[in-house]
Simulated assay, not measured.
Amino acid sequence: MKILFVGDVVGSVGIKAIETYLPEIKKKVKPQLTIVNGENAAGGKGTKEPDYQKITRAGADVVTGGNHTWDKREILDFIDDPKKNILRPYNFPGKNVPGRGFIEINVNSKKVYVINMMGTAMMRALDNPFLAADDLLKTLDDDAIKFVDFHAETTSEKIAFANYMVGRVSAVVGTHTHVQTNDAQVINKQTALLTDVGMTGSYDGILGDKKEPIINNFLTQRPNRFDVDEDGRMQINFCVVEINDKTNNARSIKNYVITPNNQTFLN
Rank of each mutant, 00 (worst) to 15 (best):
T64V: 09
N106A: 09
A121N: 11
H68Y: 06
A125G: 07
G94F: 02
K95T: 10
D77M: 05
R73G: 08
P89D: 02
N96L: 05
R124A: 11
G66A: 06
I115L: 11
K111Q: 04
I75R: 02
M118N: 08
F102M: 13
V114K: 09
F102Q: 10
D71V: 10
N85A: 15
G101T: 00
P82N: 08
P82C: 04
P89T: 01
W70A: 13
D71T: 05
N108G: 11
N116I: 01
R88A: 00
D127R: 11
K83N: 15
V97I: 02
N128A: 13
V97H: 01
V112Q: 05
V97K: 02
I86Q: 01
E104R: 14
N116A: 05
I86T: 08
R124L: 14
M117A: 10
K111L: 06
D80A: 09
D71W: 13
G101I: 00
G65R: 03
I79L: 09
N128M: 08
D77L: 07
K110N: 15
R88I: 01
A121G: 01
D81A: 05
P89K: 02
V97G: 01
V112I: 08
M122W: 09
M122C: 13
T69G: 05
G65I: 03
D77A: 07
V114G: 07
E104Y: 10
R73T: 06
M118H: 04
N108A: 13
N91Q: 00
